[in-house]
Write a protein that binds this DNA or RNA. Sequence first.
RNA 1: GGGCGAGUAGCUCAGUUGGCUAGAGCGCCCGCCUUACAAGCGGUAGGUCCGGGGUUCGAGUCCCCGCUUGCCCA
Length: 1032
Amino acid sequence: MSTPTKTELPAKYVPAEHEPAVSARWDAAGAFKADPARVLSGETKPYSIIIPPPNVTAALHLGHALNNTLQDVLIRYHRMKGFETLWMPGTDHAGIATQTVVEKRVLAEEGKKRTDFERDEFIAKIQAFKDEYEERITDQLKAMGCSCDWGRQRFTMDEICAKAVREAFFRLFKDGLIYRGKRLVNWDPVTQTALADDEVENEEIEGIFAYLRYPLVHEAKPGDHSPVTWSELAAKGYPGAEKFPEDDQAFVTVATTRPETYLGDTAVAVNPTDPRAGALKGLRAELPLVGRVIPIIEDSYVVLPVALGGDENDAKAKMATGFLKVTPAHDPNDWEIGQRHELPVINVMAPDASISADHGWDDYDPHHGAHVFVGLSRENARQKVLDEFKARGLLEAVKPHVHSVGHSYRSHAAIEPYLSDQWYVKVTDDRLRAAALRAMTEDQRTSQLMLPRESNEHDGKLRFYPDRYAKTFEQWHENLRDWCISRQLWWGHRIPVWSVAWDEYNIPKEQEDQHVLNYEVWIAEGRISFGGPPTGSESKLDRCYVCIGDPKDAEVIAEFEKYGFTQDPDVLDTWFSSALWPMSTMGWPDADKTDDQFDGLLGAFNPSSVLTTAREIITLWVSRMVMFNRYLLAGETDGQLPFPDVFIHAMIQDGEGRKMSKSLGNGVDPLDIIESHGTDAMRYTLCEMTTQTQDVRMPVEKDPETGKNTSPKFDKGRNFCTKLYNAANGFVIRMLSEHTGGEPASVAPGDLSVIDRWMLSRLARATKAIDEATGQYQFSVYAQQLFDVLRADYCDWYLEGVKPTMKTAPAQRVVIQQVLETILRLLHPVTPFITEVLAKPVRELRVGAVEGVTLPDGRDPSLLCTSGWPGVSETLIDEDAEARFERMQNLVDAIRKVRAQHKVPPRRQITLHADPDMVASLSGLGQVTETLAGLDAITTSAPEGEAVPFDFDGVELKLSNLADEVDADTERERLQQQLKDLNGSIGALEKRLSNPGYTDKAPAHLVEETRKKLEQQQAEREAVNKRLGELG
RNA sequence: GGGCGAGUAGCUCAGUUGGCUAGAGCGCCCGCCUUACAAGCGGUAGGUCCGGGGUUCGAGUCCCCGCUUGCCCA
């Protein structure tokens, strides 16, 4: 009962001839559209993945190809399994990265800087760039076969996401979780903007280490101080004080690479274990020329010099004096020390990094002499400080010193740690941090801090794959610092806060009542919220801040702007909107009252099923999604997670273990691979590479013809696909079309021959292994299983083995077809295109079923991607058939080996002489052995002419008719090699068995096995020796 | 400085409670255009499992020390 019209396919598989057409079929069928109604009605279970949105800054690279292939494998697998699947696609605006790229482009093309444009004008340029790259990225994802729900594609700055950002910001602001504070940022003094940490490049520079002396003083009261003498210190037991003239003023020597920052010093620190520390208690240092008197504090951060017990292997200890100048405004470590000791923070620089008294240097007094530095650049001031100290006898030494300094990747200027006002999310608050820690599954926790509570059903559900990444997540949260979310950029979500300096917030008397009334109403209505300092902080804000929930709320804005309020010019860190991605893409905060596109999505698909990403994202993104999802989707207690599973995949490096990068020119473009090898080949290879390790290497080669980078690793995937196509189209489809008739509608395994039962058994095992591997995110195991079952089992053994019988065995033809159709389905998530191409013609061959093999129609059987996942019952696992078939495989291998050694021409048929048991056993396999080993007969009769004996399972078999005359030398050589191998093996076995420890302690079955094996090999050796004797 | 990996054949990698003479793909070499497939088929060679200790009857696998190398965080 064959279908009337058969699908014809070309003889050779050229991916580019099929992939676009297959994509078009998927699109036309709306195959990837998710329907939340089916979930909400309870009809199906949801499976969803939120794409980690690629930056619109650049086209996708191989890491994206890997990341998205793995997601697609999961999505397609679950879709076939019958889940309602949603894979939400989208892109990220990537604030600074994108703005920078566009700035470079505009400078190159128009010779203009960003500041030559109005803000809106420049943003329009970035927007145009974004549109271009978003399209490109979308095309790439489609070319990769990603089965996203394309009708729901999002962008982190589109309207619904912007609304989510405003809502989240407003709520956090209102709840006191967003505050204004000071912090050191990476400041680029040339372009005058803050930079993210990853935009700072560390470079080794040849700098100096300067040793400066700070005179010590007593301070009776502020402004009244007197020198400390060495004799005083000696009296207090200060080691070494006696070496100095008694009446001279004592000093401490600090060592620094940046002498000019001494202008902002607010303390000198000494290690509490330093033997000099005790004598210095209560004393102070006076900064030369500046006149500032600063305390001497104790802090264990200070490195002890080697002479005082410091670590000899520590380079710092060799250079250190044991005294550290503390400049909280100009060094991140000093900032930390300043926080610990509540030191004043004195900024001595202007935004261009020149020395200035106008940006926080409040105790500046030109009469002391520091005026000589004001206005100098950092570099000139550095030299001037050295000169002035030298002139006063306070410069102890200057040594050359190579050290690492952060530079702007844009201007290449040295980064200045610069104090500025920024917005922060108080992620250290229990409502955020604890919620993230409690989210972790308990068996992945290593500390007892904030464990899941029994009372919260959403606690303890977050699991990392592989396990070890849980530790990264845990430690990050335990050492968390508040999150700086403001960026001095134009491209991004503008911070919805308006402010005015207190002393400018003047409301005319007659308007005061109305104004106060207005904002009380607005607060009650949730339209505005006033900000304060961080909870528990004593500091006062210098401005009045109001967050306006809706930036289009003209009434409110007009009112505040009337009193001088202006909107914050900064934008939010990109990760703020990314943190909302699992919610915003599904329509939050208006999930159920906007258009159909979002209706029910949040309820049906949040939490999503898994997040698939790279490990550097655990801290930047995963943490923040967990905190925001739990906080914003919560009632009184912590709410649900954005996803229960986090899968972290490997990073692809080049063949030398280097990161792939543009500057090294070692990147591989996925589109080039798709062009040269086909998408399926790329996907297969990427899956196979995805083991549980951190990094995988991909040797990169430049194609001499195209000049494009490629890698030989993809050949395996391409060859695999070719094999599949040749087997399916070239053999199975052709043969089963030509030979039909009499197929049973249902085939019972018991009625089948050994080779069929073996094949079904192998298929059952592979299916089981694949299901298990997928549940554990073991993509490499999945790919390996596919390779083994298709190539090794189905093509190399099964199809070769059934050749002589298939034409006359209708039931066997059913097995051939059913197994192929099952394999196509198993393969589909990894290699979707070629399997979709083959699915129709293979399905058209279906004439019967095998009991235990189910091939469900799924949602829509006209496409493989919406067909059901195959079920292969474990009852098909047949140990007996496997044992018999494997024995035959070993025999065929042994015969092939003899053939090769005797150089028997491939086509020459030879004769196997065996004992009756063996012959009987082989005859149960049909003609399989003869076909695979190239035999004309298997017989119990003795060879007539010359024959070559060989050993198999301890039994001597013979092969005859190898050649017109057997070459004795070849045979002797073969036997001698065999003897050598046997001697080695027998020696090892004897040694093991003569060890009483082994026979007494090892499991009995292992000892027994070893004995049997020894006996068998000894028998083989005897036979080989005998044969060698006969040869003479 | 803290954390996490990796080191097994020329290359890329498997090796799951410790147990056959350590495997695969590619590459090398040999033989084959055998009627699905030369992007293929059959076969050979190739390994002190980074080094050193330890536990064990038995270690690529577990423990300790070291070397090399990569990534993340500070």
